[in-house]
Every structure is written in structure tokens, then in C-alpha cells.
Design a binder for these strands. Structure first.
Length: 589
RNA sequence: GGGGGCGUAGAACAGCCUGGAGUGUUCGCCGGCCUGUCAAGCCGGAGGUCGCGGGUUCAAAUCCCGUCGCUCCCGCCA
């Protein structure tokens, strides 16, 4: 049989009078006894179907989410019954024949968009969750995004190349997801954190313009914008400088944004140096949709008697502050902000509210001279009723703490407005947790000055850049090192030397010896981009089958134990401690 | 690894602070009525390990401890 001749959303006033056959799901049934209405949903949308239960007794047994195929005539709705909220609200289909194709059990949750169902329940029945209009729209948007990306890059002459997903582990950076080898017991593959080295090899291979929509894996803790696996647009070009990369990425992002939002995006995006971003916004991914810029107050307080400030300055630190604007700064709110600052690593946080007479209401007001108070108020442009926050600490702590508070206090909810930004001139290296030097981007990033990388690495800048959308880091890129000798030196500065470097990266350094073109590229997270463009607050809403915060899939219950035989094949034995823990009774799901 | 929030019927919640019979609301489910609804309406009904374990108490959904799950954040995420 033919299931359908039309989709629901295709029907409009011009279809009136025609006979159609539709197939889809029963989204709603409104039974009035003598007449029954069915909202028929298919992938295209909804249309109202009218049936006479006396002629079609099957409609009495219809329940939500049954699938049906029906034929009928499209008619204009009677006067006064048009539904302006429905795209097909001017018409309806009067049933001639209706067949139930499949029935549905009572649903575990309602498929409308009005209730926030517990996410675990949604994920356990994701196939139903994805029927909800909002989720269906997100799936569609994601497909539109990848299609737009592919078309844009294809038009620009890029080659789409797939790189392996079973690769060599790289201990730097994020924790690897490991895959044990059966044929080489005791050895492991890793799932790629990015196609970085392979795409550089494609440049050596003469591809010149490469892209890939690549699944990447990082075994770190989850966040609302981080999953263990995620999708990046990865691209790379040869004989490119920074401007070439930025131009291509702007073209892709502008085209995708335009398709999904229907609004034009100004290109080029504004650019800001990393240092300026840090100094002014306290973060390397500023949200420029609001102000509250941070100012340096150190010079105003150079001779202050207030111990917290003077000590910080004496120890080479800095005093910074920002104006959070008009707010009712209650004691409890102020305390919460101080706690937040401490959580972020600050020793404390000074808050002050400007009173009607211009004086400061603050626990530390009595320690500051009139001149100092006036100076701070003036520098921060603070007016009566406005609250200012000041942190005294080392440069990075003071700024990042204030930057986070600035976001907490000022960031618009949602993503109705879009603000793209380039952050450029990242430092080459940064200090690791243990005080050792690590790369701030990745170890294949080229320095802006070779001499400075060698002689003063801590102040060397990299040819590295991030693209930021509404304060969310979408992705980053760089011009790579294409000279094997320079690459070797970069490894050396990072402490990867000698035999170690040879074992882990010898194959890569070797590849660079055969006429490697200068090259660079970029990668950005497609999940994050679609999340923002769809105004979602979690990446999980735009990933078809995501995992929970503990990496669990409530539907398939992965990860799960495997047969002993599988472990034996791999030469793997669980430790006694793990075995013991597993013997405990299963917690209730 | 750490901090916060949440967990009550198939779903979303209220009840918890201030202990007193599983009490209530909306959706769904089952039965009935109903010819213009579109979150249809009206009448009736079923449905509960108050996440789990322990403690305090004459008495615990409620207070305390532990634990599991979900979530937000810090650490972590080149």
C-alpha cells in the first residue's frame, strides 16, 4: 500500500478540495462524541484531521503516539475555527479511510514542550524525547548546520578526509579514552582528542585544504557544555597565514548562523588580543554583549593603608575592580559573592555600594582615604546605587576571579543576541598546576618569534587564536610549526626531549622533513555552536544520544561489564579491588 | 577529588522549615457522557517502597547520619 501522498506541513489553502493520504503519529486526540479531532504529526509538522466516529469506529481506540495512515479530503476550516497558532491552522483533513499501523503503550512522559521532564527519564527513552518538537527542531538544526558547513567548504575547494579514530595515545592534554588491542595484548589504542597530527600530515601529503566533521573524545568530567565525545569541524590549509584561517572560519560560521537564525552576521568578527581580553574582561573568552569592564586600580591605591591591598601590591600583585551597575547589594548577596570569589581561588573580595551622597558603603570603607575612595569611584564610573567589586591578588587570580563574577552578575540569559569575537595573540606557554611549563594551545603551535620562544619563552606569543560566541569558546586554531627543528625545540622547552620525543613523535618529526608547506588551521565544536544558535543551555539538547554527567547512558546502560572471554582475549584482568566493588549489590536504577 | 541543588503515583509539582493516618493539584491511564475542538470539556475510577539504608522519636515524606542517582559549579578539560 501507499502510506502517504503528502506530508502534513505541505497542506495549505491551495490544497483545499484535493484528496490526500497522510501517515504519521497521533499527537493529540480530541473526542467530542459525534466528531473527533486528531492532530496528526509527521516529520514535517502537524495537521488537524476530522473524523466521524460513527463512520470510523477505529478513532475511538486511537491513543497518543499510535501511528496511522489515512486518506481524506482537504477542506477549509469552518468560520471561527481557524487556529492561528498552527501553520496548517486554516485547513483540516476529513477522513475517508483510516488504518492503525501500530499502537503505543502509555507514554513514560508527555511529548509536549511544556514540562521539564527529568533528564534521566528522557534519556532512557530518548527515541520518544526526540519526537518532541523542540528536540526534533534541534536535530534538524544540527543537520542544517553540518550541511551548510559542507557546502561552504566544498565551494571553497576543501577536501573532506576521514582520519582514524584508533590512534596512538597522547599523554599531554586531556585524559585519553583507551581501547585495548587484541592482536597486540598489553598495547592500547586511544580515541582521538582531535585529528591534529593527521591533518598536519595531510598538509605534508599535499592536500592543501582539508576539513572533517570529526568525532573527538576527551575523558574528563562532564559539564553542561562538555561531553566525553563531541563533534568538531576540523580544518587545515597549506601556505596559509593567520588571516587565511580566520577568513575561512568566519565564512563557515556566518553561513551557518545565517541559515539557522535567518539573520546576517557582520564579518570580519571583531578581534582582541588575549592580553586585552584578560585585562578588560578577566577571561580569554569575553562575552561582549555587556560591559562591566575591569579596570586597574593599583596606581590609585599605591600608598594605601589598607593591608589587603598594600600587601598584594607589595608582593607584585595587582588591584582590579569593576562596576557591576545598579544592584541591591544585600549582605547575604555580598557574602555569597565573597564565597564565590574564594571558591575561585581569591583570598577575598571587596565590595562597595555607592550611596546617594557619593560615599562608599563597604566593610573596608574605613580603611580607605577619601581620595582613594573618590579615585576608585571615578575610575569605575560608579554612580549612586551602583555596586563595585575589587580583588587584590596576583595578576591572573585577580582578573580571572573578577572575570567570573562579571559573568555571574552581568551575563544575559539566553542567546537571542549573538556576539562573535576573535581572541588572538595567545601566549605560547603557561604555568601548569605543578608550576612546570606547558603549552597554552598545543605543542605544534608556532611562535610569533622564534628568538623569543628560545630566549624568553614565558613571554613569547603564539600564532594562536580562539573564536568566541557569547562568552563561549567555540574553538581554537593556530599556525603550526612546519620546521622539524623548530618543532624539536618547542618539545624541548616543554620538557619532551631525547629518546622520549623520538619514541612518541619521531614519526611526526620525520614527516616534516619532506617539504612541509607552512600551514595552519582551526577546529570548533559543532555541538556548542548549534547549542547557542538554538538557544539551548546544554550541549545535551543538541546531541542526539548524550550521556549523563557520570558518563552513563540510561537507555543502553553503557558502560557495562563484558564477558570474561572478552577480557581474556585482551589479556586484561580486573584488580581484586574492582572485582570486590562490582560484587556489591547493584544500586537501584 | 570537592561544594551547592534536587529525588513524593507513568509525568510535572505542592506538602518538609514547625514530626501526628499517603493528604492535594495538573497532565497521562481506565470507564462513561458529549458534533467544532486544538493543552477540548464534564462525571466516575485505578494508580504510592515519599530514591535506598540506618538513626532519633510514642510517631518520620518531614529531623539527623550514610549512600545511590540526576543536575549546576570548582578542580580538570593541550
Amino acid at each position: 500500500m501507499t502510506f502517504r501522498t503528502h506530508h502534513a506541513a505541505e497542506l495549505d489553502l491551495s490544497s483545499v478540495g484535493s484528496s490526500v493520504r497522510l501517515a504519521g503519529w497521533v499527537a493529540r486526540r480530541r473526542d467530542h462524541g459525534g466528531v473527533a479531532f486528531i492532530d496528526l504529526r509527521d516529520a514535517s509538522g502537524l495537521v488537524q484531521v476530522v473524523a466521524d466516529p460513527a463512520r470510523h469506529p477505529q478513532v475511538n481506540s486511537l491513543r497518543m503516539e499510535y501511528t496511522v495512515s489515512l486518506s481524506g479530503v482537504v477542506s477549509q476550516r469552518p468560520e471561527g475555527t481557524v487556529n492561528p497558532d498552527l501553520a496548517t491552522g486554516s485547513i483540516e483533513v476529513t477522513v475517508d479511510d483510516l488504518e492503525i499501523l501500530s499502537t503505543a503503550d502509555p507514554l513514560p512522559f508527555m511529548l509536549d514542550d511544556r514540562t521539564d521532564v527529568d533528564e534521566r527519564t528522557r534519556l532512557a527513552h530518548r527515541y520518544l524525547d526526540l519526537r518532541r518538537p523542540r528536540m526534533a527542531a534541534n536535530l534538524r538544526a544540527r543537520s542544517t548546520a553540518t550541511a551548510t558547513i559542507r557546502r561552504t567548504l566544498d565551494d571553497l575547494g576543501f577536501l573532506e578526509v576521514e582520519t582514524p579514530t584508533l590512534v596512538r595515545a597522547t599523554p599531554e592534554g586531556a585524559r585519553d579514552l583507551l581501547v585495548p588491542s587484541r592482536l597486540r595484548q598489553g598495547d592500547f589504542y586511544a580515541l582521538p582528542q582531535s585529528p591534529q597530527l593527521f591533518k598536519q600530515l595531510l598538509m605534508v601529503a599535499g592536500v592543501e585544504r582539508y576539513f572533517q566533521i570529526a568525532r573527538c573524545y576527551r575523558d574528563e568530567d562532564f559539564r553542561s557544555d562538555r561531553q566525553i565525545e563531541f563533534t568538531q569541524l576540523d580544518l587545515e590549509g597549506s601556505f596559509w597565514g593567520q588571516g587565511d584561517v580566520l577568513t575561512v572560519v568566519e565564512a563557515v560560521l556566518a553561513a551557518t548562523t545565517e541559515r539557522l537564525r535567518g539573520t546576517a552576521v557582520d564579518i570580519p568578527f571583531p578581534r582582541m588580543t588575549w592580553r586585552h581580553a584578560m585585562e578588560t574582561y578577566g577571561t580569554d573568552k569575553p562575552d561582549l554583549r555587556f560591559g562591566m569592564e575591569i579596570s586597574d586600580l593599583s596606581d590609585l591605591l599605591a600608598s594605601t593603608e589598607f593591608g589587603v591591598f598594600s600587601t598584594a601590591l607589595k608582593e607584585g600583585g595587582t588591584v582590579r575592580g569593576f562596576n557591576a551597575g545598579t544592584m541591591e547589594l544585600t549582605r547575604s548577596k555580598a557574602d555569597a559573592l565573597v564565597d564565590r570569589a574564594k571558591e575561585l581561588g581569591a583570598k577575598g573580595l571587596v565590595w562597595a555600594q555607592v550611596e546617594g551622597d557619593g560615599s562608599l558603603r563597604s566593610p573596608v570603607a574605613k580603611f580607605l582615604s577619601k581620595e582613594e575612595q573618590a579615585g576608585v569611584v571615578h575610575r569605575l564610573g560608579a554612580r549612586p546605587g551602583e555596586a563595585v567589586f575589587i580583588a587584590a591578588d596576583d595578576w591572573r587570580t585577580a582578573l580571572t576571579v573578577l572575570g567570573t563574577l562579571r559573568n555571574d552578575l552581568g551575563r544575559p540569559s539566553g542567546h537571542a543576541e549573538l556576539s562573535y569575537l576573535w581572541v588572538v595573540d595567545f601566549p605560547m606557554f603557561e604555568e601548569d598546576q605543578d608550576g612546570s611549563r606547558t603549552f597554552s594551545h598545543h605543542p605544534f603551535t608556532s611562535p610569533q618569534s622564534l628568538e623569543q620562544m628560545r630566549d624568553d619563552p614565558d613571554n613569547a606569543l603564539a600564532n594562536a587564536y580562539d573564536v568566541v560566541l557569547n562568552g563561549v569558546e567555540l574553538g581554537s586554531g593556530s599556525i603550526r610549526i612546519h620546521d622539524p627543528e623548530v618543532q624539536r625545540q618547542a618539545f624541548e622547552i616543554l620538557g619532551i626531549e631525547g629518546a622520549d620525543a623520538e619514541t612518541r613523535f619521531g614519526w611526526f618529526l620525520n614527516a616534516l622533513r619532506y617539504g612541509t608547506p607552512p600551514h595552519g588551521g582551526f577546529a570548533f565544536g559543532i555541538d556548542r555552536l548549534v547549542m547557542i544558535l538554538q538557544e539551548e543551555t546544554s550541549i545535551r539538547e543538541v546531541i542526539p544520544f548524550p550521556k549523563t554527567q557520570t558518563g552513563f547512558d540510561p537507555m543502553t546502560e553503557a558502560p557495562a561489564a563484558v564477558d570474561d572471554a572478552q577480557l581474556t582475549d585482551l589479556g586484561i584482568q580486573l584488580t581484586a579491588a574492582v572485582e570486590a566493588a562490582r560484587a556489591e549489590p547493584e544500586p537501584k536504577k
